[in-house]
Design a protein around this nucleic acid. Structure first.
Lengths: 195, 195
DNA sequence: AGTTTAGTGGTACGGTGTACGAATGTCAAG
DNA sequence: CTTGACATTCGTACACCGTACCACTAAACT
């Protein structure tokens, strides 16, 4: 019985049944333990979420860093992105959890990647924050678009003629989103950091 | 008694007491109405959240569009950003709400802004999605950093010497985040869209 | 042996979303 | 004037939630 095992059980539940299925009673049940026993290792549910969150940020850490800083930042971003793909509920978790050790390690790793550049400290912070913002926002969109969108409602609105531009885009067959959008935005941010 | 009035009451509660303070009972109480009466106008709590969310996206709409497309996109992004500033709970709402009419209007407006460019449809979609990703991610960071961060914990970790780069950054006095990061990232994305 | 500590968990309280169905008001047709 | 259909309101009840409080066992230390 450790914080880690509890977090692992909660992780499994969230992955299989969604974040909202994670409750103290449910986690305790999966561990064959009384509900209140969890509170010996975890201060509150928010604390549990923080542990889960930290595990996630741990997954986002790169085992080794490419030498070229652009490639390094790209790899970090891609791996972080992959974490959100594996755990779509991660964003909801982050919204109610303060940064933990692995979040710090993540920043440390980003700074490490930028160590050999000529940027000032402030520039480094700005760049890595911008990139994280983009990565998280991208994840937000992906998890949000997984939420059931009322396709009928959308079509009906398009039919009203109030959305000529949208109709022009979505009217003629389904358009598939640019698969490279993520990489593209990343590159723009990395390049644009010059100015 | 309309959907709109219910949404307005919920909005007010969320703004004053936080998103988690919004409950069916609470909203009904503020409206001097029985709890279940709300369900005549609103299918479920998620539906209520969707209405709130749509009101927010409505706030993000620009009354009139600048002619230059770069300026137009920038204004839209800034206004959307401002909405998140006024309603820090907005992200939590978006996580559990499918896009509504105003979300569609938002997209329509973005497409309108890009109408006179030489971009292909796909390029337009890519660009406006990238920008939204960035804006939302930026908002996520801002609301997340408002969450209580354990400053003692952070300092203790820095003291361990496991975070040399972070220490280098935060050790010597507090560094204030670049206030222009938002505008800067925006510009990078707009410029980088060329390639 | 006596006492402290680590760890477990049962019960209970005040909250949540909402299914169900009963009550009321409104209005057109008979 | 009555009757019935409908729109609208909402009280009660149920299952679930986080967690405060406290009783308990078993091991460790003195």
């Amino acid at each position: 019985m450790t914080r880690e095992k509890i977090a692992a059980a909660a992780l499994a539940i969230a992955d299989q049944e969604g974040f909202e299925a994670v409750s103290m009673r449910r986690v305790a049940q999966d561990l064959n333990v009384g509900t209140m026993s969890l509170y010996y290792y975890v201060k509150s549910k928010d604390d549990l979420i923080a542990v889960m969150d930290d595990a996630l940020m741990g997954e986002a850490l790169l085992p080794s860093l490419p030498r070229d800083w652009r490639r390094a930042m790209t790899e970090i971003a891609k791996r972080t992105h992959a974490v959100f793909g594996r755990h779509p509920w991660a964003l909801a978790a982050m919204l109610s959890a303060p940064p933990g050790i692995n979040a710090m390690r993540h920043m440390e790793q980003c700074l490490e990647a930028l160590a050999e550049t000529r940027m000032t400290v402030k520039q480094k912070i700005t760049l890595l924050t911008m990139i994280d913002d983009f990565v998280f926002g991208h994840a937000l969109r992906e998890t949000a678009s997984d939420a059931a969108i009322d396709i009928e409602f959308g079509a009906a609105q398009l039919a009203t003629g109030n959305f000529p531009r949208l109709k022009e885009v979505f009217g003629g067959g389904r358009i598939d989103a640019d698969k490279n959008r993520f990489a593209r935005g990343l590159r723009a941010l990395l390049e644009g950091s010059r100015t």
